[in-house]
Design a protein around this nucleic acid. Structure first.
Lengths: 242, 242
DNA sequence: AAGTGGTCTAGACCACCTT
DNA sequence: AGGTGGTCTAGACCACTTT
């Protein structure tokens, strides 16, 4: 292309940024296919190789899925791979687990100072707060509080506590167009408090693995705060660092 | 119908495998530069683009570092970025820490059944076992046991316990050509035992974050087992999932 | 000015999926 | 057979580092 640009940003980065914007805007809903490489490349006025580079980066970032012979689709949270993408809890023998969730409470409320800070919203803004227990093999092993900024999830409080699905990220994406692209987790060891002891049926002071999670969308906005306290008798948190 | 799958390995993957082999063999020691893309491409009889694809993958896997205008070098563990690559422990305010190590004991021994299993070596093979404490801000916060298969580190037992450097991976690489390319960590919460209590100056039963780490080299061989038990009063384990 | 990696192009062919 | 993404090539030009 002959457009003289004072920009330093490589062409494929510009294309990538544009694609992120269009995907975020819902131009291609989750699970649907983008136009082919050749078609997109022509629309953008770049070569197929340049466009491909943008698509490959978005694929590496789990935003797209490419199928040889079929096309390129916007990623969903439905596939098995995606389901376990953010779930680092495993059995100590290495086997994967699919926890069952049990809602304890769920309601809209004003954000606590800590929630405001973590979610990066103004103090006292309205949030939706869910408490739930997660069971593995019928035993309560996770005591969890999930907080959402209501601004990003209008009408979320009209969903009854008992109607919440097991996999929330799929709901966020399908109903609100909120795509969780990155989570940040901070772990430490804590002693079980009275609520933990009651809900998880462990003695007071029992060592729990605490996981504080922040979820970010494609543009880097914080979309969820999650505080999980886990009994790790038969479970462990598994991580790979390359 | 047992359809024999015709193995099709792309050219750039073959080149990549060959480069891994040559780097592992020490043909280009850590920190030194490889021949230029054009030179390597000609030697392999492939196009520059194909060779570049191999180099870029190795760069993504932190095995190489590419400098525009200068060349491509074998990565080391010296840079600040590399130093913190496997260190996920941070202060709770997010600040990085550089722990100081204090050797408690270090000696060769026969592998315990658990060590054999984790290191994937025959039962009773000789290992080198190091116990150490790690201090942050002068306070003992990590109680750690590190086990190495002596076969991979001949003569390691001749290093005195007090001569061990703070950053072991740099030593592995420089003295034994062992490049740690990937670590796998499994975390849980445990209660402090008598040894923990004494060394970390916490009450018996105090909640500790336990990190079991396996380190792998470029070819996927287990090269180190590390069992760390951490006081997380002012520290946390930080992780990002994409 | 020369050499390196980084971007971009255009075209060929291969592997895979669908019709 | 036709379309899709995956690999491979050859060449051009740009950005950066060194001489």
């Amino acid at each position: 292309m002959a457009a003289a640009k004072p920009k330093f940003l490589p062409l494929y980065q510009q294309v990538k940024a544009s694609l992120i914007k269009r995907i975020s805007a819902g131009e291609w809903p989750p699970g649907t296919f983008l136009p082919s490489e050749t078609a997109l490349a022509e629309k953008y006025g770049v070569s197929q190789g340049t466009l491909r580079k943008a698509l490959i980066e978005l694929t590496n970032e789990r935003c797209l899925v490419r199928y040889q012979g079929k096309g390129t689709a916007v990623a969903t949270f439905e596939s098995d791979q995606a389901l376990f993408r953010f779930l680092r809890i495993r059995r100590k023998d290495g086997k994967k687990v699919q926890p069952v969730s049990l809602a304890v409470s769920a309601r809209a409320d004003a954000a606590t100072p800590e929630e405001s800070k973590e979610l990066r919203i103004a103090n006292g803004k309205r949030v939706y707060r869910m408490e739930r227990i997660r069971l593995i093999d019928g035993r309560a092993v996770v005591n969890e509080v999930i907080t959402l900024p209501l601004e990003l999830f209008p009408g979320f409080d009209s969903i009854g506590p008992s109607n919440l699905p097991n996999t929330l990220y799929d709901l966020y994406q399908k109903s609100y167009g909120v795509i969780v692209a990155l989570v940040e987790e901070r772990l430490d060891a804590v002693a079980a408090d009275a609520a933990d002891a009651k809900r998880l049926k462990v003695p007071l002071g029992y060592p729990l693995l605490r996981i504080l999670r922040l979820a970010f969308d494609l543009k880097g906005t914080v979309v969820e705060l999650r505080d999980s306290r886990c009994v790790t008798d038969s479970l462990e948190y598994s991580n790979e660092i390359r």
